[in-house]
Design a protein around this nucleic acid. Structure first.
Lengths: 289, 289
DNA sequence: CATGATTGCTGACTTTAGTCAGCCATTTCG
DNA sequence: CGAAATGGCTGACTAAAGTCAGCAATCATG
């Protein structure tokens, strides 16, 4: 199995990667093309680009200056936060972007073209499988101080999503969870990351004299369905058990049906209301062995 | 389908590629590590490294000088051809190579580790499938003057292989094929390549007044079983038909059983001896529609 | 043995990529 | 309000990657 993975890494990653890069880097340096592509017709925030492409702030700034100099993008002030700047493609930039997009299509087609129909179907389904499983295995889960940027990014995304899904909106500060409660030994905050991007989180409170409680369980849409939520939940439970808890409990909103499915599948059962969280409709608990 | 291939290229190629590179490039620059790895415990010829890694001759030379300076390799004279130099790892180089090898194993295992047994099995079989089909689709077939380096490399490999397989050895010059006969309009020489490496060839003679003849059909062991021989044969037949030939014929040695299987599968039937090729035991022909 | 092709090496570059410290503007928090 | 944190920009770097022309050794061939 290890041998298969190694062969795959060697041939596929190297060869296809090189081909891909050479297609992208035809008119301008690779980093510029990649950045231009990543900005996209919808525009993007500079901070988001930095984490997605894992670039040094100075280097990114310089790249943006070059693209701006070439008349391909404009960097303007952010919408809500004046420090976060947003990049948009100009008309010329949009033309370039479509050119890159076309090349990407062309490259993809050149892979499919020499194959028979049957081979094509087998190749694409195998590719989808590899991508899915690889993504799942590239997710690493580890503890993180809730004040760290990665944790903050998760909590922001968590709040943004709940605000969108709840009929009444959502305000993180009304959750009644103090940051200090999520630092060992009083609790734990876990973050799931893919390369440098945070794609999920989960928190555990260990209030003395009360059962352990799970809060802030969130998984980014980009990795949903790969078992990340399950892994986060399991890690939190393991930590709670190690700290001596005999059970964990949690609350949830009626709109979060996937979450409730997960809880039930993992052995949680519904219990009566145990707090006055204004956003909660259901309360669950699970005994720890 | 195109969308699937694009997603695959984007996520897998980028992310795994970057991870792979960061593992390799821990103690020394990436290019040096890659080169060291490619040399391997068995050593390699400089010319072979250049085509495999697609490097500039000057750059490669410099990289070798650096590795030599670090006491990891020794560059010595070639065996048969005094111009082609061979690189071998020193004891220190072998240690480094094993370190890289170990890291590669480690990386592969880190991909498998977070998955369940079932997921692992699915991932590795999907990887093998992708690799196979991708390799097949990255093979490009095109005409090439038989004097070009790529063609010469193929013919050398062809001769080397036949010399190994025939009981009586093999001498290309006794084949009775003149280079000029394989240049349009008198004939055709096709080469199959993956990125810059030649992995197969096939030749067509169109002697006036005689049936067309296929010669020098060879496929590198690295891509055998992916239909490259079939594609080469088909291209040659198509060219022969376009040139007005109504049939093609060829001869082969009794030790080349896979080749004979291919010929029969493609509609060739055995015919009586039509030439005095000292290496031939069987003669085949196929009518062209 | 003279000639031309092949192979590799070296010097002298240019371009890309990446890093780090310091600065300023904006926002958040006490 | 002031202090601290955050986000981005610039200058001044270093290192790596890649290119090109010219040279020397070796080999194939007439």
């Amino acid at each position: 199995m290890v041998e298969t993975v190694r062969r795959f890494n060697r041939t596929v990653t190297q060869r296809v990667g090189a081909l891909d890069d050479s297609y992208l880097a035809r008119d301008r340096p690779l980093a510029q093309s990649r950045l231009l592509w990543e900005i996209g017709p919808a525009g993007a925030e500079v901070a988001a680009l930095r984490t997605r492409l894992d670039l040094d702030a100075g280097y990114l700034s310089r790249l943006l200056r070059t693209l701006e100099g070439a008349g391909l993008v404009v960097v303007g002030p952010g919408e809500s936060d004046g420090r976060v700047r947003t990049v948009r493609l100009t008309d010329a930039g949009r033309v370039e972007w479509h050119l890159l997009d076309g090349r990407s299509d062309e490259l993809a087609w050149s892979v499919l073209a020499p194959l028979t129909d049957g081979q094509r179907a087998r190749l694409t389904s195998a590719m989808a499988e590899v991508e899915r499983l690889l993504m799942a295995s590239l997710v690493t889960i580890g503890p993180c101080h809730p004040g760290e940027p990665r944790a903050r990014a998760c909590l922001r995304a968590y709040a943004r999503e709940l605000a969108k899904r709840f009929d009444v909106g959502f305000d993180l500060s009304r959750g009644g969870v103090d940051e200090q409660e999520l630092v060992p030994p009083a609790g734990l905050f876990l973050v799931a990351t893919v390369s440098t991007e945070a794609v999920g989180c989960g928190a555990l409170r260990l209030p003395p004299g009360e059962p352990a409680e799970i809060k802030r369980l969130w998984v980014s849409a980009s990795v949903r369905g790969l078992g990340v939520g399950r892994r986060l939940l399991g890690e939190l439970e393991r930590h709670a058990a190690a700290a001596g808890a005999t059970s964990v409990r949690l609350d949830t909103n009626r709109t979060l049906t996937e979450a409730m499915r997960l809880y039930r599948a993992e052995g949680y059962h519904e219990i009566p209301r145990y707090n006055d969280n204004p956003y909660a409709h259901h309360w669950f608990a699970k005994p720890l062995c």
